[in-house]
Nucleic acid binder design. Structure first.
Length: 359
DNA sequence: TTAAATGATTCATG
DNA sequence: CATGAATCATTTAA
């Protein structure tokens, strides 16, 4: 009975054999899977142990837009990444093990059955192939979710926008001081940036960012910055006035000088008249000592600024734009401040002018 | 909780 | 490559 059944089964198998062979297509390298693999490899999740991971992370950080010299968050990021990697590897191993176990189990089963029905090695191979495909699809899901996790991690840690901190009050003070005292050409040189960065304990890139933002935002709505401009211009003007006065050896500068702590809004320049005259003489070239040559221009800027500001300061700034920022043409854009346009007299016209109060 | 301020990024440009 | 413009995401002020 048994041999008869066996032979019948053999016959059936002969007939179906072809169709089985036909259905034996080489599974094509799934592009989706390859993409995931590549990505995991690139992120250092599926690569070799440590080295690849940090290198890839560094490369990713560099690629995602420079200036990531933050080391604290970076190590944090790396820690999370290794955590992901561990989970990924343990899961992967688990699946692999399960796959192997299942495969051997099935093979044992088939071997056992081969005593009662005909089973070719080809068939066993095919069975194994099916099992592997099933498990690899599970692996793909694992890879996919891992990729998602990595992406989230990256956007969380490598995108600095998410962990923005405001600069210290002092830092913005320094930056603003520079900005408003170089308002005619607020483009700090590389050295100046470094200096500012050092003073503010921020990076050069941050200084560049700050100036980029400041320029664009200042230009966009000058009215909004008038008060600030006055404040800082006045602040630096006080020091500038002293500096210029010292340079010109104008003897009568012995004011108590509250440095720059308060000095809000109302700027009572000690003797603005004299100061202004000094400026005129400076600009008029009647002064030849010029030890201060390089700095003078910026101070001139500052002073002219504050003077201009004073001109239209105390009528409501609702309409604003009553002060045309020198060197800032109508269309906007500072356009290299080549010609400082000689110190024009400070628009004496409407209302009170340059900081008198005391007379 | 919403609006404004602010630092950073992205993208186009010259 | 530095800058301007637009935009994002967060912090701070209202």
């Amino acid at each position: 009975m048994k041999p008869a059944l066996f032979s019948v089964l053999c016959e059936i198998k002969e007939k179906t054999g072809l169709s089985i062979r036909g259905a034996q297509e080489e599974d094509p390298p799934d592009p989706q899977l390859m993409r995931l693999d590549n990505m995991l490899l690139a992120e250092g999740v599926s690569g070799p142990e440590k080295g690849g991971g940090s290198a890839a992370a560094a490369a990713a950080a560099a690629a995602s837009g420079g200036s990531s010299d933050n080391s604290i968050e970076h190590s944090d990021y790396r820690a999370k990444l290794t955590q992901i990697r561990q989970i990924y590897h343990t899961e992967l191993e688990k699946y692999e093990q399960a796959c192997n176990e299942f495969t051997t189990h099935v093979m044992n089963l088939l071997r056992e059955q081969s005593r009662t029905r005909p089973i070719s090695p080809k068939e066993i191979e095919r069975m194994v192939g099916i099992i592997h495909r099933k498990f690899s699809s599970i692996q793909m899901q694992l890879k996919q979710s891992t990729c998602e996790a990595v992406m989230i991690l990256r956007s969380r840690f490598l995108d600095a926008r998410r962990k923005r901190r405001n600069f210290s009050k002092q830092a913005t003070e320094i930056l603003n001081e520079y900005f408003y005292s170089h308002l005619s050409n607020p483009y700090p040189s590389e050295e100046a940036k470094e200096e500012l960065a050092k003073k503010c304990s921020i990076t050069v890139s941050q200084v560049s960012n700050w100036f980029g933002n400041k320029r664009i935002r200042y230009k966009k709505n000058i009215g909004k910055f008038q008060e600030e401009a006055n404040l800082y211009a006045a602040k630096t003007a006080v020091t500038a006035a002293h500096a210029v006065a010292a340079a010109v050896q104008n003897n009568q500068t012995n004011s108590p000088t509250t440095p720059n702590s308060g000095s809000s809004g109302s700027f009572n320049l000690p003797n603005s008249g004299d100061m202004f005259m000094n400026m005129q003489s400076l600009n008029g070239d009647s002064y030849q000592g010029s030890q201060v040559g390089a700095n003078v221009q910026s101070q001139v800027d500052t002073l002219r600024h504050v003077i201009n500001q004073t001109g239209g300061y105390n009528d409501g700034l609702g309409g604003n734009s009553l002060y045309s920022p020198h060197n800032l043409n109508a269309n906007g854009g500072w356009q290299d401040a080549t010609t400082p346009s000689s110190v024009t007299s400070p628009t004496e016209g409407p209302g009170s002018v340059h900081s008198d109060t005391s007379n």
